[in-house]
């Protein structure tokens, strides 16, 4: 593999001006859950540069099909049918192959299937709301689902989450570990949301908004949205100084 040497370096430092800060008071829960002391900066050691790998054997046939993976035989969940697809790459633009992606979301009415969920919108008996997949050699992934609805949440008296899908991504080093949310092009709620506003710049927020992708729709069946994900890149190891025996 030509990139093998390059793939062994430490990860680029996280750009903390691009990422949301820990304390974002308009998102009230962050007030008591944000560390107040400075983080200890540490160049990666093996403990952060390595990470677990997930084989395709853990993935079931319907794991990337949220339309069918909870539905009763012969029934379907209610809502807009969509395909979500894209690539997982790193900051150098290299594909991250074999990345594990896990997703979860509310149903078309904005209701989660969870014991602690209290929103009055109904559960859909045919929709579970979770799925997963593994990126291929080019970092490409896809799944299909029902477009989630927006929902109100107890923060301000009238705060609403824009429609979104939660993503958890495993690259090939534990330092790359990332959880984020995908939003949908054209949703006016995006720019009113305190969780979105935790992100400091408009440019960074746009990185989370998936465009409608007519080139990948399935005619008479499903619309498509494209969502590319960028994980931290690795430093080059050329001319790296290493002590003997390491």
């Amino acid at each position: 593999m030509t990139n093998e040497k390059r793939n062994q370096g430490a990860f680029f430092p996280r750009d903390r001006n691009w990422q949301p800060p820990a304390l974002t008071p308009p998102y009230k829960t962050s007030v008591l859950r944000s560390p107040q002391k400075a983080l200890l900066s540490l160049d990666n050691t093996l403990s952060e540069m390595t990470g677990p790998v997930f084989g395709h054997n853990i993935i079931g046939d319907l794991d990337n099909d949220l339309i069918l993976n909870f539905a009763k035989d012969g029934e379907l969940p209610i809502g807009e049918r969509i395909v979500v697809h894209g690539r997982v790459i790193d900051e150098r633009g290299l594909p991250v192959k074999g990345a594990l992606l896990e997703f979860w979301q509310a149903n078309a009415g904005g209701r989660y299937r969870h014991k602690k969920e209290t929103y009055l919108a109904p559960l859909d008996p045919n929709f579970g709301g979770c799925g997963r997949t593994i990126s291929d050699e080019d970092g490409y992934y896809y799944f299909r689902t029902i477009k989630p609805g927006p929902y109100p949440w107890p923060n301000g008296v009238n705060d609403w989450r824009p429609a979104h899908i939660h993503f958890s991504i495993f690259g090939d080093g534990f330092a790359q570990r990332l959880i984020t949310q995908m939003y949908f092009e054209g949703d006016p709620l995006i720019w009113k949301c305190p969780i979105v506003q935790a992100i400091p710049s408009e440019e960074a927020v746009k990185q989370l908004i998936a465009p409608l992708d007519m080139g990948n729709t399935i005619p008479m069946d499903s619309l498509a949205y494209k969502f590319d994900i960028v994980l931290r890149g690795r430093r080059s190891t050329m001319f790296d100084n290493r002590r003997e025996g390491n």
Binding site: D15, E102, I179, I195, I199, L231
Partner: peptide, 23 residues
């Protein structure tokens, strides 16, 4: 170079996606 995708909170229902049987 590309920018790392911004992180967002895992939210209260992270278990639906990461430990669905538990949830």
């Amino acid at each position: 170079y590309f920018k790392e995708t911004p992180s967002q909170t895992a939210g209260p229902y992270v278990h639906i996606g990461c430990t669905p049987n538990f949830s």
